[in-house]
């Protein structure tokens, strides 16, 4: 039980794909102009990670070692196509905003990385927990970055106005440079918190 819990929470902080492992950065930077986009992209990616991890874990003894990467990519691409079509049908607005980055979940290194590093070596249940943890770790990172950029860039959070009328907003935060700068500063803060935790533990 303790081990399962560890697997689940690993992706949330210590092994956070965005802030710690620095993988799958393209959607992190590209879609986080608003908090809602961050949640949408995060949950879409979580679905793909969980489903493909479970399926790959089930098939891990069937897939020959030499062709495993193409096999994984096919599995992932299938789930990405499902997400793409479902979002297009039921959430057309969000689909429009995320656009190109939905099909690009296929080449998101987190998905293939978890398939290769975890699902191909572990059981179905553990792989599912790992997928959920990683996916939610990715989702919270995207949502936080999205909320910060939305607040500074247009004065709203989740579409609700939070700054007073007439207050100046920093337009550049909604533009590409803001994405890089926000991520850089957040990573610095994460490093500071971790260093402090380590010091306290000693």
């Amino acid at each position: 039980m303790a081990k399962s819990w560890k697997t689940l929470v690993n992706g949330l902080w210590n092994g956070n794909p965005t802030f710690r492992l620095l993988i799958g950065l393209c959607p992190v930077l590209a879609v986080t102009t608003r908090a809602v986009n961050g949640i949408g992209m995060g949950l879409a990616t979580t679905f793909v990670i969980v489903c493909s991890s479970v399926l790959i874990s089930l098939l891990r003894k069937v897939i020959p070692d030499k062709v495993r990467i193409p096999a994984y990519i096919i599995v992932i691409a299938t789930f990405v196509t499902i997400v793409d079509l479902v979002m297009n049908a039921y959430l057309p607005d969000l689909h429009q905003v995320l656009g190109l980055f939905i099909p690009l979940i296929v080449v998101n290194c987190i998905v293939l990385g978890r398939a290769e590093a975890f699902a191909s070596k572990n059981g179905v249940f553990a792989s599912m927990l790992d997928g959920i943890g990683m996916g939610l770790g990715f989702t919270w990172a995207l949502t936080v970055i999205g909320a910060i950029r939305e607040l500074l860039g247009s004065g709203t959070v989740f579409g609700l106005k939070v700054v007073a009328d007439g207050a100046t907003t920093i337009g550049v935060m909604s533009l590409p440079p803001g994405a890089f700068i926000t991520l850089g500063i957040l990573m610095g803060i994460m490093n500071m918190i971790s260093a402090r935790q380590k010091k306290r533990a000693n």
């Binding site: 440079p177 850089g184 490093n191």
Partner: peptide, 23 residues
């Protein structure tokens, strides 16, 4: 560079400035 910003964080901030130049 301040210690928590070493490595990736400062690189991202530089990338942001580079991106600003490209805009």
């Amino acid at each position: 560079i301040p210690e928590p910003m070493l490595g990736a964080p400062i690189a991202f901030i530089c990338a942001g400035l580079l991106s600003l130049a490209f805009s």
